Simulated scan of single mutants.
Amino acid sequence: MLGLSAAALAGYLAAIVVLMLTPGPDMMFVLANAARYGARAGVVAALGVAAGEAVHVTAVVCGLAAAISASPVLFTVIRWAGAAYLVLLGVRALRSAGGPAIATDGADARPGRAFLRGLVTNLLNPKMILFSVAFLPQFVSPASGDVTAQLVLLGALFVAVQLTVDIALGVGAGRLAGRLADGRWARRINRICAVAFVALGLRLATSS
């Protein structure tokens, strides 16, 4: 496949599966939406996150991500914007933690809102920029064929695995929240995600 060996592709897939299962802003956002608004919201949030990652992959292919990561000022602006957004998500989640187990009304329950927030959460994560720049090219071999085509393939696989994992988490969390009638599990997950958002935002703001 485009000159890439089966062993290289298998190693790449294994690496991104492990990475996708590591808790981070994207996973927390999907879980929070699924616990609060149901499985459908979790799936839509996962689609938004995947769309953001597709933008990152496109930027890598076009060379934009390398330019951003090489600009200290621009990278710092993105880092602070991402940190502020994560803290904002955490505060909003804490404020809504005392509500009903599954909310079905209000602006925040609309599918479009979950998609947009998932997209922004991923785009404002500067570590995804660095990750995309540093990770994807490691599996590209100029001797194996067109470099751009290899990057597109590897990026598509990355987005597909991320989408699969996040959808599975969103559907599972949403269904479990719906079955627990008292809502304690959903509110507990919501609080955990809220604290995680704030902690991740503060960590991002203070990281070098």
Rank of each mutant, 00 (worst) to 15 (best):
L4C: 00
A6M: 05
Y12S: 00
I16K: 07
V17E: 03
V18M: 06
V18C: 11
V18Q: 05
P25H: 04
D26I: 01
D26P: 04
M27L: 11
A32C: 08
A35K: 10
G42C: 04
V43I: 04
V43H: 03
A50K: 03
V55A: 00
V55Q: 01
A59P: 03
L64W: 14
A66Q: 13
A66V: 13
S69R: 11
R79K: 15
G90Y: 01
R92D: 15
L94P: 07
S96L: 06
A101W: 02
D108A: 12
A109N: 06
R113E: 11
L116N: 12
V120I: 15
L123I: 12
L124K: 00
N125Y: 03
L136W: 02
P137H: 02
V140H: 02
V147Q: 10
T148R: 12
L151Q: 03
V152A: 13
L153P: 14
A156Y: 07
F158W: 08
L163M: 15
T164E: 09
V165E: 07
I167T: 06
A168W: 09
L169R: 05
G170F: 12
V171S: 09
A173C: 15
W185S: 14
A186N: 09
R188G: 15
I189R: 09
I192Y: 06
I192C: 14
A199G: 11
L200S: 15
L200H: 14
A205L: 12
S207G: 09
S208W: 15
